[in-house]
Design a protein around this nucleic acid. Structure first.
Lengths: 202, 202
DNA sequence: CCTTTTGGCTAATGGTATTAGCCAAGCCGC
DNA sequence: GCGGCTTGGCTAATACCATTAGCCAAAAGG
């Protein structure tokens, strides 16, 4: 390796590419070094340790997801926006499985930058849900719901959990819109009522 | 270790306990051996390798989830059943985070036993959804949706992804019932229509 | 009671991350 | 242009990890 052609950003670039190709669990410092044409210990001149590299990848994944979802939401509202955001997220996970996997790790509480990047992704869902006129706790519940729906779908897909041949995009569209329909059709208050009922039963 | 007191089941027992306590990623053969009072290589007299141990844990997790969900569904139908199954699954993941994490790994295609155990968990959701009168592709989409919803919620919770203080059980109830409401209120056909519309636009 | 099987063990191999410490290339001030 | 400092490679070494080979004694069974 010619001296000086490498820096921290380039290392993370290579790591991102590698984990997209081979899976995050296969991303090892030895492989990464080999890919870059240097010896493993030399990596520590650019990154602190494997943990910080994973953090960098998580940040990068969150920012890329944020970028795509924000862009998808522009100029849309309601179901249209919800659908576009969900699709953008799914597309990101599909195109960058390694980065996506890295982005799933929960940020460490004391890491403000990481926490903020994760919160911003949630913020997009919150913003889109404003169109449904939800307020207070209902909005928070619905936000969690949207996160869970999209994350659950995408990560099951990534794990190969959906066996059959039915188009995955269609499934996600169905899911998001059915949920949105439930929200619009006074679903939240109905759900709250049912939850109370259930709680009394148990 | 006294000779004869140990067998494969006992090893998996200890592994399950260990990974519930310390996280699946912290489950190492060295730790496990230490816990059992033997040396690491001796483990290979009972288990083939770390991979097969993970498979055993996955099977155990799937069966326990299956058991709890089946039990929860007994004597219920409709929203009631859906809610009970979702809660049972969430409770399992919450009480056995390590086993739950192990159960998430996609079964290897040629492993019939593992594949079947995973399919049975899905089967419960399918059975519960029959009450909503869905047929054909709609039923399949809805099945995927329920899996995604429950899995997404539970795994985000396990990863600490939900920051705020709002009761998690309530959020899951909201989510499940809002989706169910969407299903009941002719949500599927509406969603399909919207999806076609969106497809034309893009 | 002797033989076979079993389930521990130690030793060794090759993988991992990481630290310490060396050394030369390149940059910066003079 | 030259000398010193910083930088970014390197090798060597440490401490883990899983896994295999091969040993040996305890238990089991004829």
């Amino acid at each position: 390796m010619a001296r000086g052609t490498l820096n921290a950003a380039a290392v993370v670039d290579a790591a991102a590419e590698l984990c997209d190709d081979c899976g995050l669990s296969q991303l090892t410092l030895a492989r990464l070094a080999n890919e870059l044409g240097i010896k493993p210990p030399s990596l520590h001149k650019h990154i602190e340790c494997l943990g910080t590299l994973h953090r960098e990848l998580a940040l990068r994944g969150l920012r890329e997801a944020n970028r795509r979802m924000t862009r998808a939401a522009i100029g849309r509202s309601g179901d249209d926006a919800l659908l576009a955001v969900a699709r953008a997220y799914r597309e990101f996970a599909s195109e960058h499985p390694g980065l996506y996997a890295a982005s799933l790790r929960a940020p460490e509480a004391k890491d403000a930058e990481w926490t903020r990047a994760a919160a911003e992704v949630v913020g997009i869902a919150v913003a889109v849900l404003e169109a449904y006129g939800l307020t207070g706790n209902d909005a928070l519940h619905a936000t969690r719901a949207v996160r869970a729906i999209i994350h659950g779908f995408v990560s099951l897909e990534a794990a190969g959990g959906f066996g059959s041949t039915l188009k995955l995009e269609e499934s996600l569209d169905h899911l998001v819109l059915t949920f949105a329909h439930g929200l619009r059709a006074d679903g939240v208050s109905a759900a709250a009522k049912a939850a109370r009922l259930r709680k009394r039963n148990s």
